[in-house]
Amino acid sequence: VLKALERTRQLDIPDEKTMPVLMKLLEEAGGNWSYIKLDNYTALVDAIYSVED
């Protein structure tokens, strides 16, 4: 979780936006981090930006 938060902080995305999206992605992935961690957490960042749209 810390590495995911560090990555999104680099992009000026607050933890308050990151955590709900991260928890949803983890739930959808059955707790499997490998998809979320791919390409420096690209799936997480993309999911956060899609929620903002």
Score class of each variant (00 low, 15 high):
S34K: 12
L26I: 08
M19F: 10
L38P: 06
V45W: 05
D12E: 11
L26H: 00
V1I: 15
D46N: 15
L2C: 15
K17A: 09
L22P: 00
V51S: 15
K24S: 08
G30L: 09
K24Q: 11
Y41A: 00
Y49E: 08
L11W: 05
W33A: 03
A47H: 06
L44G: 01
Y41S: 01
E6S: 07
L11I: 05
A47Q: 06
D53W: 10
T8Q: 01
T18D: 02
A29D: 06
W33V: 02
L38R: 13
L25S: 01
S34A: 13
N32W: 05
P14V: 04
I48N: 01
K37A: 15
K24D: 06
A4D: 05
K37Y: 12
E27W: 10
V21K: 03
D39T: 04
K37T: 15
Y41T: 01
S50Y: 10
P20A: 11
M19Y: 10
T18Q: 02
N40H: 07
L22N: 00
R9Y: 02
V21F: 05
L25R: 01
L44N: 00
T42K: 15
I36S: 00
V45L: 13
L2S: 14
L22G: 00
S50M: 14
L38I: 10
V45R: 03
N40M: 05
D46R: 12
I48M: 06
T18E: 01
K3N: 12
D39Y: 08
Y41R: 00
W33Q: 02
T18I: 05
Y49K: 13
L44Q: 01
L38S: 12
T18C: 06
L38K: 15
N32A: 08
L2R: 13
D46A: 12
L44A: 01
L2H: 13
V51M: 14
P14H: 05
P20W: 09
V45T: 06
W33S: 03
A43V: 11
A4N: 04
A4V: 06
Q10C: 09
S50W: 09
P14K: 07
T42I: 11
D53H: 14
W33C: 03
I13W: 04
E16Q: 09
P20G: 09
D15C: 06
T8Y: 05
E52M: 14
P14M: 05
L38Q: 15
L38W: 11
L44F: 01
W33I: 05
P14D: 07
D53L: 14
L25E: 03
V1F: 15
D53A: 15
E27N: 09
G31R: 03
E6P: 00
E52K: 11
E27K: 10
Q10H: 08
V51C: 10
E27C: 11
M23I: 10
P14R: 06
K24H: 10
L22A: 01
L25H: 00
D46P: 00
L5Y: 01
G30E: 12
T8L: 09
K17V: 15
D15S: 04
T18H: 02
L22F: 01
Y41M: 03
E52F: 12
G30I: 06
K37M: 15
Q10F: 10
V45N: 00
Y49P: 04
D15L: 04
D12Q: 14
E27R: 08
I48L: 09
A43P: 12
I36F: 01
T8R: 01
R9C: 06
K3V: 07
D12C: 15
Y41D: 01
L11F: 08
V1K: 06
L5W: 00
N40L: 06
D53Y: 13
R7G: 01
Y41Q: 00
Q10L: 12
K37P: 07
N32R: 07
A43F: 10
A43Q: 10
Y35N: 13
T8D: 01
Y35H: 11
I48S: 01
